[in-house]
Amino acid sequence: MKIERREQAGAVTQVAASGEVDAYTGPELLEALTDSLQQGEGPTWLLVDLTEVQYLDSIGLGILVQAAKEAAQGGGAMAVACRTPVVLKVFDISGTRAMLGVRESVEEATALLQARKGGGDGEADGR
């Protein structure tokens, strides 16, 4: 798995992963998300780009859920960009797609975060 971190316009922090997220590689993702959540002061607006992730299991899911909770507790939010069918299926079966703010592109996930920053819930499309 490879991980990249970058600042987006509008104070959104982006963590982009590629490859497979499982019990072996999950700690890398956990570290990147934890670092992003702990950097700076104030709420964190975190975009997790999984569009290049081909596999994610319950370990990866647990890491994402924890990060989303921590972002929300700090007054921010997290959104996930993902279009890999098997990963989307894991989100659906576990009932976490809405809670994680999953969208099928980085642009859509960014728009969701911007809506939440602006006070909207970003769920007007019913997903």
């Binding site: 019990a23 596999y55 319950s58 069918p85």
Partner: peptide, 20 residues
């Protein structure tokens, strides 16, 4: 393809439980 994906996740989860 979809069945392969399902099997891959299920078997990997069973192995992860054993490892843990």
């Amino acid at each position: 393809y979809e069945d392969v994906d399902d099997i891959k996740v299920a078997v990997s989860e069973a192995c992860t439980n054993a490892i843990d």
